[in-house]
Simulated scan of single mutants.
Amino acid sequence: MSELEYIGHHIHVRISSLQRMLDLSVVELPRNKIKKVGQELCALEGLLEEFEKCVGQQKERLTHLKELEDSFVMDLEDVQHIMDNIPAHIPRKKGPDNESEAVMTQNEAVDVQPVQLDDVKKSNKTAVREMAFITMSEFESIPQYMKGRATYGQLNAVVQSINTSVTAKYKILRQSLKSLNSNARKLHQRFRNQETKDTKGQYFVVEDDIREFTQLKVDKRFQGILNMLRHCQRLRELRGGGITRYMLL
């Protein structure tokens, strides 16, 4: 029983007691009974004052709880907004890619056969370099005319697609020709033909690689996003032989 309920119960008992005394007032009461009625009235007055005090305290508590509820509702809305707008790709510090390699492609035509243990050891010695995701501060620094309607999530989705292409491409290049099927050998040869003295020791992809290993559309919007990636110093272009190479920085 709460303090307020306890006082209310006590007042009810007092009032009931006074009611019984008043019911008996039709007869002449002894002096001591009249004195008792006065004492009960004084006690009831004190209880009423205490009751009013408790009511005031409860009102203050109710107001405080209402403020807390409003604060919790606002926090909940903020958290929900954050959850609904989490970027598809959150930039993070990348470590050596020793344990996993990205899925090469959803195009099942490229079927790389298992390689010999020596080839795996050689492949694991040097991790494939990937492009770092764009941070929110970098995205906000891009001029509006360059961003257009592209969103932060779309920009990093292209970064992910480029990384997938780079990983798949250099996975093939690092395997021996004997371990590859005919289609993968053709890709291996194409990759080698696209290399020049300026690409030595560098990682790069071309548009055909992105089409081969991802489902990303290489269209006008893609070209616009490449401009933003150049602005953020994630890549540079190297043209020659009728193709454009996107070099990772």
Rank of each mutant, 00 (worst) to 15 (best):
H9A: 15
E52M: 09
V166R: 00
S2K: 12
C42W: 03
E237G: 04
E49A: 15
E45L: 07
R61I: 05
N227G: 05
A132Y: 02
I34D: 08
I86S: 08
A150I: 05
M21W: 04
G224M: 01
Q160M: 02
E212Q: 08
I15A: 13
L4M: 14
I90F: 03
M146I: 08
D111T: 06
R61Y: 05
S2E: 07
F51N: 08
I86P: 05
Q194G: 09
I82W: 03
I11F: 06
Y145G: 08
G153K: 03
R190V: 07
Y170F: 14
R92N: 10
D23G: 12
G241H: 09
G224W: 00
H9Y: 08
Q175T: 08
R245K: 15
F133D: 01
Q57S: 14
H12V: 08
L155V: 07
V73N: 12
K59R: 14
V128Y: 01
L41V: 14
I162R: 01
Q144L: 14
K122G: 11
T244F: 00
V159G: 02
F139N: 05
L62M: 12
L235A: 04
I34S: 10
R245N: 09
Y170S: 09
Y6Q: 15
S137N: 06
A88R: 07
S2H: 05
S16K: 12
K121E: 08
D111P: 05
T244K: 06
S161G: 07
N163L: 01
K53R: 15
